[in-house]
Design a protein around this nucleic acid. Structure first.
Lengths: 147, 147
DNA sequence: CGATAAATGCAACCAAATTGCAAATCCTTT
DNA sequence: AAAGGATTTGCAATTTGGTTGCATTTATCG
């Protein structure tokens, strides 16, 4: 998969270039699925000195700049993924047991969907389409346990 | 708007009848928009003695029994609404400023959506379609402030 | 390089939700 | 109606994801 360039992404977003921002952005660009703040902290590890608070603030600046998308889940963890041309909007699947988030194929229905919605007077900034249930491995595990 | 009957709803769900469950269910049935645990506690007020923990547990039992739907938001609050024939699935709008949740007309596209999605091996239990942005009054307020 | 604005780290804090356990309540069986 | 066992509730304490205030460090621009 093709990736965005870290430096140009930050520049285009008008964000100053810091090691922490580069680390978070690099982690998100390399990731093959959405990550939460904790995931990002773990993945950065000793690569660079970074604080939990900084991760949240960096993610917030990315969201405001529009370079990441935010996907809230039922347990209060918020996941993030790149919002670039390499990663068009798509729905997600969240497993309520293992709390993993997976990307689903978009089938390109979003647009038709959106056209059918009349949001009244609200100014819509983002749409989240989220399926929840049990992932394959949790189905298996649950079945085994319950018997 | 027509409403569900409290007792039969509990009976059909196989849930024993307690004052607390009746109070929560009654509150949700009467509500004209999704409520979070806090909302429910406030609305019940002195009507019946009920603890915060009980509200969460009651809501969880309702969700498991399939009589309510859960709508998670970006700030970690989870909203609940009746999942009965009087209240078919529909998308919601969440204001990121005042944190209010409003119901949007469904336009009946959910089903088409579902048909287009291939969730792999996951067992889907629910779908949440959530628009986020600024509600009318928060747009106005924000504009005034920023000028 | 030096100044100024912005970003970071740390500690403390907050709010939503959860857990463990004892007390109260429900429901079935006499 | 009373008893007894299972379920539900209340309370206190805890967990968790996220936020705030402020001092220190770092980036950026003249």
């Amino acid at each position: 998969m093709e990736h965005c360039d870290i430096r140009t992404t930050l520049e285009n977003a008008g964000l100053s270039k810091t090691v922490q921002r580069e680390a978070v952005l690099s982690t998100l660009i390399r990731a093959d699925l959405p990550l939460c703040a904790r995931d990002i902290l773990v993945r950065i590890g000793r690569e660079c000195r970074i604080n939990k608070v900084t991760v949240y603030r960096v993610l917030d600046s990315f969201r405001t700049a529009g370079i990441v998308r935010e996907i809230p889940t039922e347990h209060g963890e918020t996941f993030y993924e790149m919002a670039c041309r390499h990663n068009p909007t798509h729905p997600h699947f969240y497993c309520r047991i293992c709390r993993s988030l997976a990307c689903l194929p978009s089938a390109g229905i979003e647009q038709k969907w959106l056209q059918g919605i009349r949001p009244g007077d609200a100014a819509i900034e983002s749409v989240v389409i989220n399926f929840t249930g049990l992932c394959k491995s949790c189905q298996k595990r649950n079945r085994t346990v319950s018997v």
